[in-house]
Design a protein around this nucleic acid. Structure first.
Length: 107
DNA sequence: CGGGTGACTATAA
DNA sequence: TTTATAGCCACCC
């Protein structure tokens, strides 16, 4: 059950990230209208069910890396899915060319 | 109410 | 480039 209506918005934003592209937590937060609450996005994603259809793997941190310890289960799953989508992941870092995704950012 | 935590971020050294 | 610090916000005890 979700008490915070912002979660719905966050899910919507995450779901609107085009295949082959990625966005940062802060970016998603801004698009969801909660600029500055990147942690909220991370928390939101952490609550997603394992069988969710949401492309949570297209969300990474501002450093352009996967926000999981290298070698962890989550890291492996995310890196694998990203590469499957055509995103280049090298040493945990995402190719800057992948950040081409832009959307109306209201902050 | 206070303190700790985390799939964050910006800034400084 | 990498760490260290401080700010951030919702949630849990």
């Amino acid at each position: 059950m979700v008490q915070n209506p912002v979660y719905e918005l966050i899910w919507q934003v995450v779901g609107s990230i085009p295949p082959g592209s990625v966005a940062t937590y802060g970016q998603v937060a801004s698009l969801a209208g909660v600029c500055g609450s990147a942690r909220l996005v991370g928390r939101c994603l952490s609550q997603l069910p394992a069988d969710t259809r949401l492309p949570w793997f297209r969300v990474i941190n501002a450093s352009g890396k996967i926000s999981f310890p290298v070698g962890s289960d989550g890291y492996i799953r995310q890196a694998e899915r990203l590469q499957k989508e055509g995103v280049v992941v090298l040493n945990g870092r995402i190719n800057l060319a992948t950040f081409r995704w832009h959307a109306g950012i209201d902050c």
